[in-house]
Design a protein around this nucleic acid. Structure first.
Lengths: 154, 154
DNA sequence: TATTGTTATACTCTATAACTATA
DNA sequence: TATAGTTATAGAGTATAACAATA
């Protein structure tokens, strides 16, 4: 119902352009996905920002890189990683080649939290399960087409 | 690259289940859409929360309803509407039938800001434009199938 | 008694600017 | 001099608890 979900309930829905409908429905899906993610994160005692950070940590990552990935200023990352480190979900490690750099790595506990987080996205998983095999494949293809375009530099 | 975008760069992408890929790609699309929305909001001098609030105001809405719609506590809405009202984008109006209730309405300026906000989502619009007519229709159908399921009560 | 909106409080996220230690 | 990470600061979002006005 929100983000760009501007359609007036129903009346001229038929007359509405596919583009406008598309942007509205995508807005709703985005909102629902975000809520599901935030809820699952909260169940692990994490804020959305903390959850986003730990989920991206597939390999040791410098603070600076993390800032770019999270689309926020580097100064914010200090606090986010501080709080994750206090919960023993990540660790800061000195870089071998550049002593200015600190690489953030996930701990065992952090990896467990990520697994539980993924498992906790019930609404999203249920929505996919309800889709047929063919529809899932089609949706995957279409979203894949969308994704690189959305990766526009800010 | 984040949210649930867990795939290990590439290696066993082919062996990965469609479901896992789907959740990964959807995560990327969601992230990109959110960024586009936040950027467009910032261009209008609005935070994401403020933009979300004003975009949902199709008709006069009690503070309480707004809180449910934004998935946050009612006490937060006071501040968000305070700041929107200070920018003359919305107004609080006393309810005729229940004197406890205040209905929030969008001003002319608020409606203009919403229009500019929608127009400013360049990346999202570009991504849709790049899709063919058929793909747009298919995506609309598939997202529509997803949406009510995601509307699961929190 | 229950509900609406608000206030007070405390914590987190956010950007900006300035600092330090390295490069 | 430029860069990585941090600190300090101030504004905004968030939940919890308590409150006044109204139902």
């Amino acid at each position: 119902m929100f983000m760009l979900g501007a359609m007036t309930s129903s009346k001229d829905a038929a007359a509405e352009s596919v583009d406008l409908q598309l942007i509205g429905v995508l807005g709703e899906v985005v909102t629902a996905y975000y809520r599901d993610f935030a809820d699952a994160a909260a169940e692990q005692g994490l804020t959305s920002a903390q959850a986003k950070a730990v989920v991206t940590l597939q390999e040791p990552t410098p603070m600076r890189t993390l800032a770019e990935r999270l689309c926020c200023d580097a100064s914010n990352v200090t606090g986010i990683i501080d709080r994750l480190e206090r919960q023993s979900l990540v660790q800061r490690q000195p870089d071998q080649h550049d002593r200015r750099v600190k690489n953030v790595v996930v701990t065992e506990g952090g990896a467990d939290a990520v697994r539980r987080l993924r498992g906790g996205m019930h609404a999203t998983r249920a929505a996919f399960d309800a889709l047929g095999e063919d529809d899932r494949a089609t949706l995957l293809r279409l979203l894949g087409t969308l994704q690189p375009l959305l990766d526009t530099p800010t």
